[in-house]
Design a protein around this nucleic acid. Sequence first.
DNA 1: ATTAGCAGTCACGGCGTTCGAGTGCCAGGG
DNA 2: CCCTGGCACTCGAACGCCGTGACTGCTAAT
Lengths: 334, 334
Amino acid sequence: MLDERKLAVLRAIVEDYVSTTEPVGSKSLVDRHGLDVSPATIRNDMAILEEQGFIAQPHTSAGRVPTDKGYRLFVDRLSAVKAMSGAERRAIEAFLSGAYSLDEVVARTVRLLAQLTRQVAVVQYPSLSRSAVRHIELVSVAPRRLLLVLITDTGRVEQAVVDLPEDATPEAVAHLRAVLNACLDGHKLAEAAASVTGLADRIPVPERANAGAVFSVLLDSLAERTEERIVFGGTANLSGPDFGMGLRDVLEALEEQVVLMRLLGESAEPSALTVRIGAETGLSGASVVSAVYGADGHPLAKLGVLGPTRMDYPSTMGAVRAVARYVGRILGES
Amino acid sequence: MLDERKLAVLRAIVEDYVSTTEPVGSKSLVDRHGLDVSPATIRNDMAILEEQGFIAQPHTSAGRVPTDKGYRLFVDRLSAVKAMSGAERRAIEAFLSGAYSLDEVVARTVRLLAQLTRQVAVVQYPSLSRSAVRHIELVSVAPRRLLLVLITDTGRVEQAVVDLPEDATPEAVAHLRAVLNACLDGHKLAEAAASVTGLADRIPVPERANAGAVFSVLLDSLAERTEERIVFGGTANLSGPDFGMGLRDVLEALEEQVVLMRLLGESAEPSALTVRIGAETGLSGASVVSAVYGADGHPLAKLGVLGPTRMDYPSTMGAVRAVARYVGRILGES
DNA sequence: ATTAGCAGTCACGGCGTTCGAGTGCCAGGG
DNA sequence: CCCTGGCACTCGAACGCCGTGACTGCTAAT
């Protein structure tokens, strides 16, 4: 149905369009690529490709432009991820290594990814529930109010205020802290739910009410907030007339955590690199290249870039993959 | 030199231009405002205002547009801050009260300010060095590595990694923690520099090297990072052809912490409301309305909005002032 | 199956015209 | 002296009108 040459034509169209931003015609196609056939032949191929929905023409007597379906085929079968050069890889590593806190790592990752791809970078903080607890701290700020600070092995620090039903003595707080740490240290928060329920037994009855409040904050409030921390950067790369929708809509979408979540993909399938194209993203005219990053083989969160459907997929995918790897490595070390 | 009517004309020009986005002519001026004179008279006044540099015409035979100098005069002498309505004030308070952590407070403030003013909101985190220390926590993550967590009375939590010159025993860490807390609790970090130097005496000699490392991180690394945390939002409000410079430049500027700092103003003069217009901001075509916010009378940090020079100053100033007040109040409570 | 040739389409850019808002100036009147 | 009505003038925006060129699709020949 689609012979070798037609695929080559589609590939050439995508590549040319991506680099020139202009509809590509049959003549310039044969000129630029080493196709040994005449423009007329290409035209016939293009007619078929159009019929099948891989390309379209903005108006009669203009060149062809890839459709979402065309990009899809290109990404799936016609292109290979372009690996980063050695120099680039070293630069990435050097840039990320300089960070001294999780916030810093994430901030740098965003900058790096945006600069590397010249697009909008989106980075999700390592999931709390999938990280292991390193330390839990309780600080009294009022007789009936505690500040709960959770430190994970990825260096993430989360805080939450706990309102207690009863006054708590410093001793009770210290005890609770000790019990929590003893029980949760080194475990993942997701697995902790089970152990915490049995934990109540170790708490003297008069303090159980307070302990319950702390547990519920730890499990509900923190775990819920968990996935929701996503930052982005590089919005300046949103140049003019890209994107079918207005630039304004894109900016609005980026400021909605919910939308950002969806862009990175709800399902955390472990596949390394995900490409969502055009309508698949929910933003018309936009594509998202995302990857899962993690340390020691288990996934922590996602990161990716958002750009116009017409983007350089091979390079972008290479950059995203490389950055995801290094971020995982850095977080695994700390 | 500028009689009452000329000032009224300038005020009218600013108001009309702000609301219509179009150069305003003499005729529409007398129509819309209740001026009891003829257009010709207004034209004469306008000629004088132009001569003095308060207004300009984009091209011959077009209406007049305020210059930076014109806006300046308008803000300083011709307008009054427009107070928020009771309903609006209640809404602000309700929206901000729902936050349960400092991050949340700041995030909500940004959203709120952006929505209220329909412009880009910029909020600086409460200054660390001007906040009082509530608690310091040290967590061993490796024999020669500590995680230093600092909790302030404004609810801000800062972390930093400390690399130790020598191995530290758990007892030594506990001791150091106790000393730090005893000495710094309730004090401002800025004042702490002095007390910390004397503090070394209380540390047994073998641990001094490690203690020194912790101190220096606390004072240098944390205190420096301190002012630099500024977030912004509402970039979707950057509509099209505002701003003399390209939209891209504005977005780029917003992603530079340094530029954000400058926008909010280096000098922390305690004056409540600052308006910087046009060239004064460093961004051509942009204005910044900013305010200091603080709790219990002492300043913590700044916040403000960035918009086109042609903005509704009275309303914007009202919104900024109101939000600054409520944020200060909320942070004072916690 | 490919190719050359040809007629047809249509966006784009340049050009001249019109239209109208708005100005500056001047002379007359309170 | 300040205000006003009148008038000629200016100039950008909008409109319409080509000519141009880059395409295409079709057909007939190889």
